[in-house]
Design a protein around this nucleic acid. Structure first.
Lengths: 140, 140
DNA sequence: TTTTTATTTGCAATTTAGTTGCATTTAATT
DNA sequence: AATTAAATGCAACTAAATTGCAAATAAAAA
């Protein structure tokens, strides 16, 4: 994971710093959307709050992470680690699944958002679908 | 509008207070998603901040308002004033359109979210689609 | 109409989320 | 090894949202 993270950073011309490698690796491992608070907790305050915010923001600006729509009050982010979201062509169509029991949010790769009709004169540039329900783990 | 608001409150067994009537009327008039800050501004501090929060929350708990997914940092809410979201059968499938120029969020009534395939073992209870693009006003 | 009572409101204080400025440190280049 | 632009850590700050409690009030009962 570490090596993959370093490669991704290099591809995006971002400096390979310990924080960035750690954060990106964690996003890659964890297959779910994470908040700033999640990172702080996971890294047990070994990194500065503000630096974590800045790390997240630089990842977003560089198309490594994207915001995940959620109504929980704090922003959540995810890497989409499939073909559709590769380095040079970040895809702004995402389907996320939020489990209402464990409250994890996963990025559903392979699920495509169907076209939706919009009123005359409207143009669409991005689409985000959030599905809520119960994941397979919690359904047992 | 006021009379409609009073009727809705009564139907939900919520007390008819001036704030509630004013807030609900404003949501009904304004055809877009509103944040707490929008309300404060519109009512020009004639109501208490905290009371506005509590008003919003009680409306959500009673199915009068729903949260609108957004990544702007502050929560937004909307009433869906069409047939699909009537009093006794609140519909949790919403399509919202956010204009990236004027940043208004509208609830697209009549647009239905098509079924999306999810992995085995997953069940879906709600779906929210946020479309981003340019609205007809800003497209001129 | 007045009394009662549970709900709602307003205020102060607090918590949580996110940002800004600046001095220090460090990754990558020369 | 020296240079330099970018990244980090700290302190302070702004913004968003919540909690507790006393005072006010809507709706029901007398």
């Amino acid at each position: 994971m570490k090596i993959i993270a370093e490669k991704i950073l290099k591809e995006h011309k971002l400096r390979n710093t310990p924080i960035r490698i750690a954060v990106l690796s964690y996003f890659k491992e964890s297959n779910s959307a994470l908040s700033h608070a999640n990172l702080e907790q996971y890294f047990n305050n070994q990194f500065d709050r503000v630096t974590l915010y800045r790390t997240i923001n630089s990842f977003i600006e560089n198309g490594i992470l994207h915001k995940v729509l959620d109504d929980s009050g704090s922003a959540k982010y995810a890497v989409c680690n499939d073909d559709h979201c590769e380095v040079h062509q970040h895809n702004d169509n995402h389907v996320h699944f939020k489990c209402t029991i464990c409250s994890k949010i996963e990025c559903l790769h392979h699920a495509q958002i169907p076209k939706v009709k919009v009123p005359m004169g409207y143009t669409i540039n991005a689409a985000n679908l959030l599905l809520e329900g119960i994941c397979s783990k919690c359904n047992n």
